[in-house]
Amino acid sequence: MANIKSAIKRVRINEEARNHNQSFKTEMRSSIKRVEELVNQKNEEDAKAALKEATQNIDKAVQKGIIHKNNGNRKKAALAKKINELGA
């Protein structure tokens, strides 16, 4: 454990930030899994609706700096590709 006052504060703030970011990350992952499940069930219409929600969650995580911009774009492209293959 840290001994210096500023280090103790930094540990506390980092823990609070980690907990705050965790909820956004969890929501993002859940929405991605929802899209993948719908694609596996070959449910194109619901998958497109879920993709819209997942895209919003990914964009929110990127905006808040939880994930990198390129990582977010890669996730969105992979989901869109799965849905496009479903329609073809």
Results as ranks from 00 to 15, higher is better:
14 N>E: 09
53 E>F: 11
21 N>L: 08
52 K>G: 14
25 K>I: 15
67 I>W: 06
19 N>G: 05
46 D>H: 08
14 N>D: 04
15 E>P: 01
71 N>R: 13
88 A>C: 14
42 K>H: 07
63 Q>W: 11
47 A>L: 06
55 T>W: 05
19 N>A: 02
52 K>R: 15
15 E>G: 03
74 R>V: 06
5 K>E: 13
52 K>W: 08
65 G>H: 01
35 V>N: 02
48 K>N: 03
85 E>M: 08
68 H>T: 05
73 N>Q: 02
33 K>L: 13
75 K>W: 04
18 R>N: 06
42 K>R: 11
37 E>N: 14
1 M>P: 15
34 R>S: 13
28 M>S: 05
83 I>N: 03
21 N>P: 00
81 K>E: 11
42 K>Q: 10
1 M>K: 03
55 T>C: 03
44 E>T: 12
30 S>Y: 08
12 R>C: 02
82 K>F: 01
60 K>E: 14
31 S>R: 15
50 A>T: 08
31 S>L: 13
49 A>G: 13
15 E>R: 13
25 K>T: 14
19 N>H: 13
88 A>Y: 15
71 N>Y: 02
13 I>E: 12
34 R>C: 07
84 N>F: 11
84 N>T: 14
66 I>Y: 02
3 N>V: 10
88 A>F: 15
63 Q>C: 05
60 K>H: 14
76 K>D: 01
39 V>S: 04
40 N>C: 05
47 A>Q: 05
9 K>D: 06
46 D>Q: 12
38 L>A: 02
48 K>E: 05
11 V>D: 15
37 E>D: 15
11 V>H: 12
41 Q>K: 15
27 E>W: 04
36 E>L: 07
24 F>S: 00
38 L>Q: 04
58 I>N: 03
10 R>D: 11
73 N>C: 01
46 D>G: 11
14 N>G: 08
32 I>P: 01
4 I>K: 14
54 A>L: 07
2 A>D: 03
22 Q>P: 01
65 G>I: 05
11 V>K: 13
39 V>D: 02
30 S>P: 00
38 L>V: 01
80 A>H: 05
70 N>W: 00
50 A>H: 03
41 Q>G: 00
17 A>N: 15
41 Q>H: 11
84 N>V: 14
71 N>V: 04
51 L>C: 03
64 K>G: 01
5 K>F: 07
66 I>K: 03
43 N>S: 11
74 R>Y: 07
38 L>Y: 01
1 M>W: 09
29 R>P: 01
82 K>C: 04
62 V>I: 14
64 K>S: 00
26 T>K: 09
85 E>V: 10
57 N>Y: 14
72 G>R: 00
68 H>W: 07
35 V>Q: 10
83 I>Q: 06
78 A>G: 11
31 S>F: 00
47 A>Y: 07
38 L>F: 04
14 N>W: 10
